[in-house]
C-alpha cells in the first residue's frame, strides 16, 4: 500500500493548526528519522512556494505550522478575519529588532545598545505577544532573558527566524521628523 508520508504530514499539520507540531513529534508519528522529516518538510516548503498555492509552512524553534501567505494579508483582513493593529512605535521597533537578532537578551543589554531605557517598549512588546521571557541569565541578579515569539513571525509574515534580513551596516537615515522639529524651533 502506497502510504504517502507527505500526505500524512500535510494532514497532521492541517489538524494541528496554529499549535503546529515539533519535528520530533512528527518523526515519532511517521516513524522516520528527524532528518527525513526535515527533508520532507523542505521539499514541501518549496512546493508551497508556488504562486498558485495559498498556504505556507512556518518554522519556529523546530515546530512547524501552516499559515496563510503574507502577500494576501490585506485580503484576509478585508474579509474580516482580523482587524488592523496599531503600528509599533520607533522605540518598540528598535527594541524588537535588537531582541530578534540578539536573542536571548536581557533588558539592560537592550538599553545599552539603544542608549536609552527600553522598559516601556519591552512591556508593549510583551503585551502584544511579540516577545516573551526565556529564562534567566546566569549573572548577578539573574536578569530575565527575552526572545521573540511565534506571533512575532506571523505578525511580520516571516517564515522562520532565518527569514530575518541580514543585519547590515549600510543604511539611509530618515531624520525628517527630527529636522522639522528643530527647524520649527529656530523659526519660532
Amino acid at each position: 500500500m502506497g502510504e504517502s508520508k507527505l500526505a500524512i504530514l500535510e494532514g497532521l499539520l492541517f489538524a494541528a493548526g496554529e499549535e503546529g507540531m515539533h519535528k520530533k513529534q512528527l518523526s515519532e508519528i511517521l516513524e522516520i528519522r528527524e532528518n527525513e522529516v526535515e527533508e520532507l518538510l523542505e521539499d514541501w516548503k518549496e512546493e508551497l512556494q508556488n504562486p498558485g498555492r495559498g498556504i505556507r509552512l512556518m518554522e519556529s524553534r523546530g515546530t512547524y505550522s501552516l499559515t496563510t501567505k503574507p502577500e494576501y494579508a490585506a485580503v484576509y483582513k478585508r474579509w474580516g478575519y482580523k482587524k488592523n493593529h496599531t503600528r509599533l512605535s520607533q522605540a518598540s521597533l528598535e527594541s524588537l529588532a535588537i531582541i530578534a537578532y540578539r536573542q536571548p537578551i536581557t533588558r539592560v543589554e537592550v538599553d545599552y545598545i539603544r542608549g536609552v531605557k527600553s522598559d516601556q517598549a519591552l512591556q508593549t512588546l510583551a503585551e502584544r505577544q511579540l516577545v516573551e521571557e526565556a529564562g534567566r541569565k546566569e549573572t548577578v541578579g539573574r536578569p530575565i532573558l527575552y526572545r521573540t515569539t511565534e506571533h512575532f513571525l506571523t505578525y511580520f509574515g516571516l517564515q522562520s527566524l532565518e527569514d530575518l534580513p541580514e543585519l547590515k551596516e549600510a543604511f539611509q537615515e530618515d531624520y525628517s521628523a527630527a529636522e522639522n522639529f528643530f527647524d520649527s524651533l529656530e523659526e519660532g
Partner: peptide, 9 residues
Amino acid sequence: DNEVYSRPP
C-alpha cells in the same frame, strides 16, 4: 501588511 494567519487546532 505581511501578517499571516493560522487557526486553532
